[in-house]
Design a protein around this nucleic acid. Structure first.
Lengths: 102, 102
DNA sequence: CTCCAGAATATCAAATACGAAATAAACGAA
DNA sequence: TTCGTTTATTTCGTATTTGATATTCTGGAG
């Protein structure tokens, strides 16, 4: 990356080529994880309030019980996509989800 | 699935074993797509307002220009995870900028 | 205690998303 | 027009996520 672009980025608030960008990454990463955990807890609460077993809910989203368990456990190997689709299936309004997203 | 569980699901608002569940799926799917498109447009607008090229922004999220283009185009092959991490990267930096301002 | 439904955990191959690279297209400035 | 920059599109090998299955753990009822 050339000097021109470095200055452009720095003007926008970024330091590059040193420790700052990975601190920045960690911050993004931790916010992201926090978001997923919030969604997974919301999911578990909602499923339980509907008196559904993990197996039953898995059938609704065409997935498996084990995957539902991982979702609710905040397993890092579960995508946001699956979490959000699950919440949408539970008739969580799109507006509610958007509020939780950045 | 036995009758007990069918009634349980129906009580929760679902019809099963017929066309309704895939209509439900389509509804979830379309809401999901709408959400991704909304996020991708937000991302594009935000990047442009920061006067960053796709290539520069790709470097910030350790991705590639082509993937940024796909993100902004609402390509179905782009995950929510990547979209949200991208938005977090921009927003976090926005906060940093605001801190630096008088 | 035993039994059993519900939930957690481990493993696997198939599907999908990934970054990278190359190329084409779009657009403006010289 | 030509040239340089930005964005869109395609391809490819790799990495991650997936549903499914099996197994284990947990807790409550009998």
């Amino acid at each position: 990356m050339d000097v021109q672009k470095q200055k452009k980025l720095e003007a926008a608030g970024w330091k590059i080529g040193n420790a700052e960008d990975f601190l920045e990454l960690n911050q993004v990463e931790s916010s992201f994880i926090a978001l997923k955990i919030a969604l997974s807890q919301h999911l578990k609460t909602r499923r339980q309030s509907l008196r559904l077993t993990q197996k039953e809910f898995a059938g609704m989203i065409h997935s498996s019980q084990s995957r539902v368990a991982k979702m609710e456990a905040g397993d890092p190997g579960v995508s946001l996509d699956l979490l959000v689709k699950s919440l949408l299936t539970l008739k969580t309004s799109q507006e509610d989800i958007e509020k939780m997203l950045p």
